[in-house]
């Protein structure tokens, strides 16, 4: 019994730790709060590189979260906020890169490879069928 209690306790502490990175913030509406949550998860922390703004405790992430919060409360659109960040930190801050010639291969490369694979597959199947037909 004590053992199970201990597990629950540890899980509880662990779950509450994951929420530590974020400050308490007041929002004018539930919608704004949801928008904030989405934005800080989509934007990458420029200092720590492999964390988003929501997860990071670095000074700059705290500042940028506050900036996102302010801009939302000022009535800026999501696109305006994203553009603001890209103008200062580059496309690097976007976890979902914009579609452009530079990111063309990134977005469509897998589909192109899939297409090539499919063509090769059909080609091989056709050849082997033809050969089997000849052998019989």
């Amino acid at each position: 019994m004590m053992f199970i209690k201990g597990i629950f306790l540890v899980c509880g502490i662990w779950l509450s730790l994951s929420a530590v990175a974020q400050e308490q913030m007041a929002f004018r509406s539930e919608l704004n709060k949801t928008r904030y949550q989405n934005l800080v998860e989509e934007l990458r922390c420029p200092k720590c590189q492999n964390q988003n703004l929501a997860d990071s405790n670095s000074g700059i992430a705290v500042d940028l979260r506050e900036q996102v919060h302010q801009m939302i409360e000022q009535g800026k659109t999501d696109q305006e906020i994203v553009d603001y960040m890209v103008a200062r930190y580059g496309e690097f801050v976007l976890y979902r890169p914009q579609h452009s010639t530079a990111t063309f291969l990134l977005w469509y490369g897998p589909f192109i490879l899939l297409g090539i694979g499919l063509v090769a597959f059909i080609f091989v199947v056709k050849i082997s069928r033809k050969r089997r037909g000849r052998d019989e």
Binding site: P46, I60, R88, G90
Partner: peptide
């Protein structure tokens, strides 16, 4: 407040 830092894209 670090506002100019953000305008310059400073990370630290």
């Amino acid at each position: 407040m670090g506002n100019f830092g953000v305008d310059m894209g400073v990370t630290g």
